[in-house]
Design a protein around this nucleic acid. Structure first.
Lengths: 121, 121
DNA sequence: TTGACATTTCGTCATTTGACGAATTATAAT
DNA sequence: ATTATAATTCGTCAAATGACGAAATGTCAA
């Protein structure tokens, strides 16, 4: 029950549903998610932690950046099934579509706009 | 998004997951759910209302009793899919199994024990 | 080494949530 | 009619949750 509740609680927040949908297109670093959601980095980090603890997403640290992606083969089956369900439920959702539009711009210019260090080189 | 959030929020509570699992065996009246959960009737009523508002369960009023059942054919597709997922996620769960044992006793003697009026006749 | 930056952790605050009992509504028994 | 019962609604309280900024951590650049 605990494991399932971790998942349902993780899914019971609109911001976290947006994050899950945003990651459908592939991994993102925290600063990109921050840019999309327009929330404080600390807030976004907390949401990512909750999703991570539920097994719905995983993280990978590359030098100074941390990239998050949806649960995959190496993840618990329960998480994979939950993901499949919630993605179906959100299919065609207006705010999700809006986010995916915004994400296109972010992933295009993110390096210069968000990660100045990397952009300067 | 709103509709999906109603569902995920409804699923983000252990008591409500127990109710959903309890209804898998067929409809129950509020007093039977109260007996299973050992919570105040007003609390149970509130949980049932939240589940009802999300579309996951439906109610039927029969004279003095209100019976709740899982969403069925006449219910929104989104709810049906959510139900299917969560039931799978809870399959084999220890506390759910325990509840189903307790439910057997409740549905057997409920009339006399819980609904004295009906029992007396 | 020193400074800058991405991310996380922590403390605080406002809002939401779950539990309860009291009061209310609707229905049935006497 | 009056009383009793099943269920709901409402007000209150404690606990959980989400948002933020400040401080801490870890990594890279100069």
């Amino acid at each position: 029950m605990e494991e399932t509740l971790l998942i349902t609680k993780a899914l019971s927040d609109g911001t976290r549903l947006r994050i899950i949908s945003a990651l459908k297109g592939g991994e993102l670093c925290v600063c990109q998610v921050v840019e999309l959601l327009k929330l404080a980095p600390s807030t976004v980090s907390r949401h990512l932690h909750i999703l991570s603890a539920s097994g719905l997403i995983r993280s990978r640290k590359d030098t100074r950046w941390v990239y998050y992606r949806l649960a995959d083969a190496g993840s618990p089956k329960k998480a994979a099934r939950a993901l499949k369900w919630v993605q179906g439920a959100l299919e065609g959702d207006a705010s999700i579509i809006q986010d995916s539009q915004a994400l296109k711009k972010i992933t295009r210019v993110s390096r210069e706009a968000l990660c100045r260090t990397q952009g300067k080189r």
